[in-house]
């Protein structure tokens, strides 16, 4: 069991680091998805450990939510791209200080 969770923490952390270092908004977003996936792994593993299905339901909800989130997120990225011709998150820094 521990190894599943450890894997999940690793994937989660990698995803988090990805958010910090990638500049392409789409990849950043993919990294967030990686984090969600890592969470799902944890949920599923814990479900097995505790012997109830709540974890699996949680993972299911996460997938649904992720789908909705991706729709919105990609729409936002596209609309930004239309205006700025870039998907680099570093270029979106008019708002600061």
């Amino acid at each position: 069991m521990t190894e599943y969770i450890t894997l999940s923490t690793l994937l989660f952390s990698i995803g988090a680091v990805g958010v910090l270092v990638r500049r392409n908004a789409i990849i950043v977003f993919m990294c967030v998805e990686l984090m969600l996936n890592a969470t799902n792994l944890a949920f599923v593993s814990f479900a097995r450990q505790h012997g109830n299905l709540d974890g699996q339901v949680a993972a299911f909800f996460v997938m649904v939510v992720a789908a909705a989130e991706v729709t919105i997120g990609l729409a936002i990225i596209v609309s930004i791209y239309r205006t700025r011709r870039t998907t680099s998150v570093d270029d979106a820094n008019l708002l600061k200080a």
Binding site: M1, T2, I5, T6, T9, L10, F12, S13, I14, A16, A47, R48, Q49, H50, G51, L53
Partner: peptide, 20 residues
């Protein structure tokens, strides 16, 4: 973060697995 989280989790995940 990774080290902290995995240490914490690895430390405390109970080994008893009920199974589904």
């Amino acid at each position: 973060f990774a080290v902290l989280l995995s240490t914490v989790v690895a430390q405390s995940v109970s080994l008893a697995v009920v199974g589904l």
